[in-house]
Amino acid sequence: MAAVSLTVNGKPVTADVDSRTLLVQLLREQLRLTGTHVGCDTSQCGACVVHVNGRAVKSCTILALQLEGANVLTIEGLAPADGPLHPMQEAFRENHGLQCGYCTPGMIMTAVDMVRRKGHDLDDHTIREELEGNICRCTGYHNIVKAIAAGARAMRHGATAAAAE
């Protein structure tokens, strides 16, 4: 066992982990942040996507010990627990971008990262290509694509509002 210290959703965390502990195991099993899911064992489905130092990564394919000093953001930390939803979360609800909800946290974290990299005006083609690493079995993606386009636009307003404060 070795200790690892990192920041998760803005809070400092120190945990004792086995070297083979994956980030997703640290999150789910030790920190009880169960919003991050595991849907495959080949790093393809994207149900486990979180942000590490501001970038989307697959938490099933990174060791907890690789994250010493890192800043991790999970779906639980995207918006304050008692505050308003993140615009991307709201867009998923408004556009019925989810059914069973299992892939949803990964989808939303991927979508937020997509906006960071690709901006607020996302066309359908771009969104569909960018979702290569996120598999949904329920929605046929139609409403996920709509949700991400709407969420990306809404994030611009959110950013403007935040900047004005």
Binding site: S43, Q44, G46, V49, V52, R55, A56, V57, K58, T61, I62, T110, D113, M114, R117, E130, E132, G133, N134
Partner: peptide
């Protein structure tokens, strides 16, 4: 290569 999250690593 891979997908956006894979390309980050």
């Amino acid at each position: 290569i891979g997908d956006p999250a894979v390309r980050h690593m």
